[in-house]
Design a protein around this nucleic acid. Structure first.
Lengths: 353, 353
DNA sequence: TTGAAAGCGCTAACAT
DNA sequence: ATGTTAGCGCTTTCAA
């Protein structure tokens, strides 16, 4: 009975509103945009009809016309685990605050995907891009392309060294300071033979954490013992393996600082298995403040990476870079991590921070 | 010296290419799109210049013209923790496979944000929307608006009951089957007094899991003991508290099934604290297969929610709903969860699945 | 206070 | 095989 339009699923447009109201589309457009020059009466009529017809403005058209999409692009290696979801969350929240939508892509740690995603974001006319590059990325030419289009770029966490200052911003964690803080803490707890489980040094994060470890020892006049540092890919199993090996030594360490929480957890499991007490016999500390660190027994001392703050900060920097007349080469931002002291390292009473 | 364009940051357009090549924009457009009708020679010239000038097609314009944005919208309560990032990951991967971009919004469990985000997605002209609604959402009128615009909608995990079959798809986990499987497993391990830590029953997930618990008992002729079920908001602390209370009882349970891994972990901590052995004295099982469940001691038996698969499946269903002539009212999809037996419940030798 | 008209960059008839 | 043209829905001069 009801006469259905044959092409019913076309959305209501400004033109439709204008026609039914008997006014020009420019007036309708202005009314909807809340321009002061339009009479209240007209605004009322327009808004009411828009409501009735479930009018939804077409952002695509508006963006095309305006030349701005109001969208930021995000490119991360993946959105699983603890760190990236948390950072992306910070990004989403802050972007929304600044009036931007967010388009998220993941490279799956693959350079080719990364290139594709980058093009995708450029084609989507994003006004700025936030990137943490894949760990297989060695050639960064594809980021130059972004630069050439004058799309502001902010790297976070994994930054491209040597690209700073070239229309590019960056936000990283001060890994050095984080490691320095944990190791200093361990020393304060009376530890003198502190082992270090480090990831491979060609990754700058690991290099910085290792340097923090070394400098903290030196500054506190604790001798650096080469054999106490083990390099390997840090995870639960390898952490356990390394710990077992370390326990073969003639002289045992009195603490282990792992550059990653999983490796620390693996080490703790071995220590307990062997009947060694944590922290009394050997103190343990990790890095990242993963969710599970409050679940281990004892709870794990670690360094918080301020993920949410990193996302926020990155967006703030990016948004400042967007206006045409803005500073395109902002200073790199380095966030101070937070030492989180828990039971795996607390030997003295009331050492809570 | 170098003469810089005053308005240098305008991106290269098809028109620019056409002008420099001395051909019409339609030829260029066709060449770039790889139409068969264009000569190879022309294609070559066009592609080369496009490369040289770093031409990037403007998706906004293409989408506007075509009337399709090639974008799917995703609306989740948040992208932190374990579950949602993992599902979103599945969504992103599958969407990309199907040639769609993804726009992700989070409601932060807030209905108002949810409404706003929904409008945002509609305005962005997404071709379909995947939603897991905020847990404060009771009125679902804002989803009707999506429906009215003929934008296909797929709910996942948190579904709107009663909206099914109305141009709406859904993908959920079979919580009932998951709970039924764990409890059956516990019974097979010889447990007869199985306690249940359940979340509030007004949430359907909890209701289903509880029912699975009850039915598994009944079907295996194990008596249902009312006092063994505790209702509370499940987390680490409350799990510990509930466990302590339970240990006051005259007759102890011989197993605990918590509808959430954190509560199970809390319970395990208390058990160990009291010198009770897991699983020999009291077996423990959780639900969700959180990352940390392989880190607890003993490792925690749990139910995997197939997060990635849920994301994939949801996208597949959504994509099928997009064509004009498609079935707009697909059958709800119910995913079978996977029981993961670990040491916290393994009493018999070789019970690995 | 309102309207007419141009055009953002692209695609797709419809020519030729 | 290539060109001409109209128009997607919107914003924004310019004119009235």
């Amino acid at each position: 009975m009801a006469k259905q339009n044959p092409k019913a699923n076309r959305r209501t447009s400004i033109t439709d509103l204008a026609r039914t109201l008997g006014m020009s589309i420019s007036t309708v457009s202005r009314a909807l945009a809340g321009h002061a020059e339009v009479s209240e009466a007209t605004k009322q009529r327009v808004r009411q009809l828009a409501e009735e017809l479930h009018y939804q403005p077409n952002q695509l058209a508006a963006a095309l016309r305006r030349g701005r999409s109001n969208t930021l692009g995000v490119l991360v290696p993946h959105i699983t685990g603890h760190f990236f979801p948390e950072v992306v969350n910070g990004i989403a929240v802050e972007a929304s605050k600044a009036g931007y939508n967010v388009m998220i892509c993941q490279s799956n740690e693959d350079v080719e995907q990364e290139k594709k995603n980058l093009e995708l974001l450029m084609n989507a006319q994003v006004e700025g891009i936030l990137v943490s590059h894949a760990n297989t990325t060695l050639d960064f030419a594809h980021f130059d392309a972004v630069n050439k289009l004058d799309i502001p770029l902010v790297f976070f966490d994994r930054v491209v060294e040597g690209m700073q200052g070239h229309h590019v911003g960056s936000v990283v964690l001060d890994d050095y300071a984080g490691a320095y803080a944990v190791v200093s803490h361990l020393i304060e707890q009376g530890c003198r033979r502190i082992a270090h489980f480090s990831g491979p040094l060609h990754v700058n994060i690991n290099r910085n954490r290792h340097q923090g470890y070394l400098d903290a020892l030196t500054d506190h006049h604790v001798p650096v013992i080469e054999d106490l540092t083990c390099f390997f890919d840090l995870n639960l199993e390898t952490g356990a393996v390394a710990m077992r090996e370390l326990l073969q030594s003639a002289e045992l360490p009195d603490a282990v600082f792992a550059s990653n929480d999983l490796a620390a957890a693996g080490a703790m499991q071995v220590l307990k298995e062997r009947g060694l007490r944590v922290p009394q016999d050997i103190a343990v500390a990790g890095f990242s403040n993963e969710t599970f660190t409050i679940l281990t027994e004892p709870t794990l001392t670690t360094v918080d990476q301020c993920c949410h703050e990193m996302g926020q900060t990155a967006v703030q920097q990016l948004v400042r870079m967007i206006p045409d007349d803005s500073d395109k080469t902002p200073d790199p931002i380095v966030l101070k991590p937070r030492l989180i002291v828990r039971n795996s390292s607390r030997r003295l009473p009331d050492e809570a921070q």
